[in-house]
Simulated assay, not measured.
Amino acid sequence: MRQRVMVLLGLALVLCVPAGNGDWRMRIHKGTTTEYHAIAEIDSLTFFDFNGMVLVPAGTFIMGDGVASCGLDEHEVTLTHSFYLGQHEVTNQEYLEAVQWAYDQGYVTATTSSVRDNLDGSTSELLDLDNEYSEIQFDGAGSFYLRESPSSNAQSAYPGGYDPSNHPVKVVTWYGSVRYCDWLSLQTDLPRAYEHSGNWSCNGGDPYGAEGYRLPTDAEWEYAAQWDDERIYPWGSEAPGCSRANYNSCVSWTSPVGSYPDAPAALGLSDMAGNVWEWCNDWHVCNLGMDPAIDPTGPGSGGNRVIRGGSWSHADYYLRCATRNVSSPSGSGSYVGFRAARAIHP
């Protein structure tokens, strides 16, 4: 496997210096302070930003594994931008707080059965609230709240009850996931990444150049999941089991995010396999071809969007890093969620 990595350290300047006894140490400058760490004692480095996101350094990898569904085509992909990726899937609590803010700002409309977009003339459905699987609800008077799902799946998985706040948000459409990303951008004075009309393109078709929050591209998602050794599954090449991921009714419902060992551990990401499928930015096409690609963006249009990672109700076959599945952007269900991303620019 050929892996070329370019790491951006942002606010920290890191130098490796000899310690005098032949052992190399890492010298980290933070403002006016300096820290030293023995290189031999460091197992791995994990980078986080202030919003619980993990730094994924730019580099090159082989996309596809020759086996996975819609991952048969193996080809070299180079990602020239490092990017931040959510450490975990967006939770019900995180989405509730964001959609409440958006409602208060007039960016969405809501009834007890649905949340719809209210920007750029769009009325696309973002959340299907009258679905029994939805753990987010609206009281009709201006406030969102959480509930346990009354579905038989949730009730059988947690007969004693459960706290839905830290479970991944569900029954969210692709439109609802990119809208969440735009809310984060608006809250932090960043340009919105997405148009909310026509093709809903991200930054005019250049997601890697977007300054604001967005969904990861198809390539970014796989690159992060297999970091950095072309592993079959996010945890490695060992066979799936219920101790490694929530899939195929191991729990029969979602688990709180971060319930399983971080995988890939080198990045500290959680639930890249199982729990819920995750929306990606790209339109879906099954055969990607064999030609090398730099910062691929997928088709310019289509009928379905890419989803990744498998879910609590799907078989172990879908947990492979290279598996690429598909869903209508207006569709939603108990097994689809997302995590946010953001590119780093010099």
Rank of each mutant, 00 (worst) to 15 (best):
P299H: 05
S143W: 00
E97C: 04
L215Q: 06
G176E: 14
D43P: 00
A340D: 01
N281V: 06
A157N: 11
D139N: 15
T123V: 06
Y145H: 15
F47M: 10
H88K: 11
S165F: 00
V77F: 13
Q87N: 03
R324Q: 08
H75D: 10
D295M: 13
S114Q: 14
V276Y: 04
S332T: 04
E74W: 01
G160S: 14
D73G: 05
A102D: 11
D229R: 10
L190Q: 10
G52N: 11
I136E: 01
T78L: 07
N153P: 05
L55Q: 13
I62F: 04
N92G: 00
N281K: 04
E222C: 07
R25W: 09
V336M: 09
M26L: 15
G258E: 05
C250W: 03
R244A: 14
A293C: 06
N304C: 13
V54M: 00
A265Q: 14
T34P: 04
Y318S: 11
G71N: 08
V171L: 02
S114H: 12
S82G: 09
Q155A: 10
D104A: 02
V14A: 11
S151C: 11
V276R: 05
Q93D: 08
L190F: 03
D104M: 00
T32P: 02
N199I: 02
L11R: 10
P292L: 15
L126C: 10
K30T: 06
S270K: 07
G198W: 00
P240Q: 12
C250T: 01
N304I: 08
N287A: 15
W200K: 11
V54K: 02
E76V: 10
W101M: 05
H345C: 12
L79Q: 09
Y213A: 06
D295I: 09
R214L: 14
G106D: 14
F83P: 10
G209A: 04
P346Q: 08
W283P: 12
W279D: 02
Y36H: 14
Y84I: 06
G309H: 07
E76D: 02
Y95R: 11
V178G: 04
I344P: 02
W221R: 08
G303S: 15
Q187N: 14
L85G: 00
L8K: 12
G161H: 09
M53T: 02
S177Y: 07
G59R: 07
A293I: 04
A343H: 03
G212T: 13
W174D: 08
A273P: 00
I344Q: 01
K170I: 08
R25H: 12
A102C: 13
K30E: 11
E211I: 10
N199P: 03
I344A: 04
D163L: 01
W279R: 01
A210I: 07
Y194T: 09
Y317K: 14
A245G: 11
G20C: 06
A58L: 05
H284C: 02
T173N: 03
V5W: 02
N248F: 03
G66Y: 02
